[in-house]
Amino acid sequence: GTLHLNGVTVKVPSLEKAIKAAKKFAKKYNLEVQVHGNTVHVH
């Protein structure tokens, strides 16, 4: 999967790991997580 954090793109081995990391990051910075196919966006 691919993880987008505020314009930074990170390749992640699995989508589940990407979503987990995204949710952790989003919670910390009070951001929103959106999943588009195998790409996770945090903004």
Score class of each variant (00 low, 15 high):
Gly1Ala: 15
Gly1Asp: 08
Gly1Pro: 14
Gly1Phe: 15
Gly1Cys: 14
Thr2Asp: 05
Thr2Cys: 14
Leu3Trp: 04
Leu3Thr: 03
Leu3Arg: 01
His4Asn: 09
His4Ile: 15
His4Arg: 06
His4Phe: 10
His4Asp: 05
His4Glu: 06
Leu5Pro: 02
Leu5Glu: 03
Leu5Met: 12
Gly7Val: 10
Gly7Arg: 06
Gly7Gln: 05
Gly7Ser: 08
Gly7Trp: 12
Val8Ser: 05
Val8Phe: 13
Val8Ile: 14
Thr9Asp: 04
Thr9Leu: 14
Val10Asp: 02
Val10Met: 13
Val10Phe: 15
Val10Cys: 13
Val10Pro: 01
Val10Thr: 06
Lys11Val: 11
Lys11Tyr: 14
Lys11Asn: 10
Lys11Met: 12
Val12Arg: 03
Val12Asp: 01
Val12His: 08
Pro13Ala: 13
Pro13Gln: 13
Pro13Trp: 12
Pro13Ile: 13
Ser14Tyr: 06
Glu16His: 10
Glu16Cys: 14
Glu16Pro: 05
Glu16Gly: 10
Glu16Arg: 10
Lys17Thr: 09
Ala18Asn: 00
Lys20Gln: 12
Lys20Ile: 12
Lys20Trp: 08
Lys20Tyr: 08
Lys20Glu: 12
Ala21His: 07
Ala21Leu: 15
Ala21Asp: 06
Ala21Gln: 07
Ala21Trp: 15
Ala22Asn: 00
Ala22Lys: 00
Ala22His: 00
Lys23Gly: 02
Lys23Gln: 12
Lys23Asn: 07
Lys23Ala: 04
Lys24Leu: 08
Lys24Phe: 10
Phe25Asn: 01
Phe25Val: 05
Phe25Ile: 10
Phe25Glu: 00
Phe25Leu: 11
Phe25Asp: 01
Ala26Ile: 07
Ala26Tyr: 03
Ala26Arg: 01
Lys27Gly: 04
Lys27Leu: 07
Lys27Met: 07
Lys27Tyr: 03
Lys28Ala: 05
Lys28Leu: 10
Lys28Tyr: 08
Lys28Ile: 07
Tyr29Asn: 05
Tyr29Gln: 02
Tyr29His: 11
Tyr29Arg: 00
Tyr29Val: 05
Asn30Tyr: 10
Asn30His: 11
Asn30Lys: 08
Leu31Asn: 02
Leu31His: 02
Leu31Ser: 02
Leu31Asp: 00
Leu31Val: 10
Glu32Ser: 12
Glu32Gly: 05
Val33His: 00
Val33Lys: 00
Val33Asn: 00
Val33Ser: 00
Gln34Asp: 05
Gln34Met: 12
Gln34Ala: 10
Gln34Leu: 14
Val35Ser: 01
Val35Asp: 01
His36Met: 12
His36Gln: 08
His36Glu: 11
His36Ile: 14
Gly37Asn: 06
Gly37Val: 07
Asn38Gln: 08
Thr39Ile: 13
Thr39Leu: 09
Thr39Pro: 03
Thr39His: 15
Val40Ile: 14
His41Asp: 05
His41Asn: 08
His41Tyr: 15
Val42Lys: 03
Val42Pro: 02
Val42Asp: 00
His43Asp: 04
His43Arg: 09
